[in-house]
Design a protein around this nucleic acid. Structure first.
Lengths: 345, 345
DNA sequence: CTGAAAGCGCTTACAG
DNA sequence: CTGAAAGCGCTTACAG
């Protein structure tokens, strides 16, 4: 730990050194339009003084005066879970950075008391807005205190409120995955979906059915299973589907982990991907999907974009499209690798 | 996006409503020792006024006055990569929260210019300290501007500087993994290590050799490989080791991903874990290790503790042990699952 | 083209 | 036991 609390230079000191008033320093430093009228030599003297003193504006003082903190709060229920947090934070930070804002990150563990306390905490810091996020897409009811500032909901939605919300286009993602398989020639497509009560599972099922319908393939409920996202459940369901009567030639799995489980099942049955069975995953969890053998075709969750877009809506004065209360869906692009081929024979 | 910029109540308003001076309000609100002398009824009136107005102190004003922001900066090269960031941030936040601090998170992508800019940015915000982190354990040379505040290095170290640094006890981790296999009765233990130039690989190798030595087993360089942490490299090396002459009965892999690759190799050879081959991984990446079949015994990287401890050193006035320039190692505990058994026959 | 002065909302000696 | 007043370091009308 290194320290050097040598009290930092103030604007007054810069002004003195440059032989101008603090007003002038402020104008120059902030590139104020009015600074256009300040003479070149004066600006140079200010710049030189800033440099020689190592001056950096005191943000607390500025914030006190301007009533802005140039900080965004990012409050989320789970930050440690792999797929979600990292990329989302990065996306939110990237946009914030462009706008000269910083991100204060808070993890609530989903505890309502902690959510409340976190909001109070960042509100006390005069944040310019709050991103309220959830780890998996779902309905939430944010604490009322969230209404005291600008806020956008990330990966969650709160019907009956006026928050803008940013979530992945799950239905479209389900449709895309299914269409990829359809395009490869498959007609019997097993779908190992997630927990049937979740938003994602419901939407993806709609997408799956729509793709089938659009391609004149009839929907067979027997081919649809609900797993728990873990690989062993993918393993189990894939095994059952594949050893059942009139087995599917392709499997769409609602998580890469379940898809990896399906890989195991295929291997165990002495079959091979994509020769005998095609597989499409969901999530694009790199270490699973990219390094599976064969590398897995999957649908990507737009974590980065979720964060980026949420920050954008918070910082833009006028959201480019839609208004309060709107749910903005972000596309889930397909990542094509080698686990899909034509059906056997 | 909901808003309600109805300018927030100030301490002066609270004072007025309570019929006291701002001084009294401040004392009561901050639980100042001097407030002990304030009469019960007065305090009650203050509390009531605070409540009825929904008063929350303006942190910028307080910070300006006290020269503290109660905020920590967390600057790291990669935030999106699975194993590292989430848990570490959570750890750092948990400790900060205890001490009434918040965490501002910054992702630099490892770009020196961005590192510099990030430090400037949080310095401008008067952070009380900076955690400077790296995704994988390594030597770093932080920008000089980092010296302008308290700072601790997380998962990295800078020889010749006076920073405290917090890193995983990799040598001990390597020793632990090897000892687990030794204890199960193995004497020929293959080691699929990471890139030989990395700190982690060097330390783990030391640990591996020490465990061997402590147990009177001679070191065979032939049994040690350097992979690239990905599953295909684990696959490859495991296959070579297992099909070579006098093959090992156990494999210690420096990442769970490589261990999963080793699982594939074992399966392909018609062998079974742990009956024919025992495997120990490293990282405890949940979706890989816990859901592998059989569930994998592995060594855990102390991400959460790294973050927690770094924040602690930053906020504690007197670090409990050691001082500036010290490298603090955090233990990598073993997670025992089902991939280790006695050697065959 | 540039400056003097007020004020953002707190905390903290100091006084009584 | 409580208050008046200064001051933290900026920005921003206002004046000239």
């Amino acid at each position: 730990m290194a320290s050097e609390k040598s009290s930092r230079p103030t604007m007054a000191q810069v002004a003195k050194l440059a032989g101008v008033s603090p007003t002038t320093v402020s104008l120059v430093i902030n590139d104020d339009p009015r600074a256009k009228s300040i003479s070149e030599p004066t600006r140079d003297r200010v710049a030189a003084a800033v440099r020689s003193l190592g001056y950096r504006p005191n943000h607390a003082a500025r914030g006190l005066r301007t009533q802005k903190s140039e900080t965004l709060g990012f409050i989320t229920d789970e930050i440690a879970t792999a797929p979600f947090a990292g990329d989302t934070i990065r996306g939110a930070q990237d946009y914030s950075w462009k706008r000269n804002h910083l991100l204060t990150v808070l993890n609530t563990g989903g505890d309502p008391a902690m959510e409340e306390a976190s909001i109070e905490m960042v509100l006390g810091r005069q944040v310019d807005g709050i991103i309220f996020g959830a780890m998996y897409t779902r309905e939430v009811s944010p604490p009322r205190s969230l209404e005291r500032t600008r806020a956008v909901l990330l990966n969650c939605y709160a019907p009956g409120t006026s928050y803008i919300s940013v979530i992945p286009a799950e239905k479209e993602g389900g449709r895309t995955a299914t269409q990829i398989l359809l395009d490869a020639g498959h007609r019997r497509i097993g779908f190992i979906n997630g927990l049937s009560t979740t938003y994602a599972a419901k939407e993806r099922l709609k997408g799956y059915r729509q793709a089938l319908r659009d391609n004149g393939v009839s929907y067979e409920p027997r081919l649809v299973r609900n797993g728990n996202y873990h690989s062993d459940s993918g393993h189990l369901h894939a095994r059952e589907l594949l050893t059942g009567e009139d087995p599917p030639t392709a499997l769409f799995c609602s998580s890469d982990r379940m898809a990896v489980g399906a890989y195991y099942a295929v291997m165990e049955l002495g079959l091979s991907i994509p020769r005998d069975v095609s597989v499409v995953g969901y999530d694009n969890q790199l270490e699973l999907a990219a390094y599976a053998s064969p590398p897995m075709t999957t649908i990507q969750l737009p974590h980065y974009e979720l964060g980026y877009t949420a920050a954008r809506y918070l910082l833009e004065d006028a959201p480019s499209n839609g208004s309060a209360g709107t749910v903005h869906e972000i596309e889930c692009p397909a990542v094509i690798r080698d686990s899909v081929g034509p059906p056997p024979n």
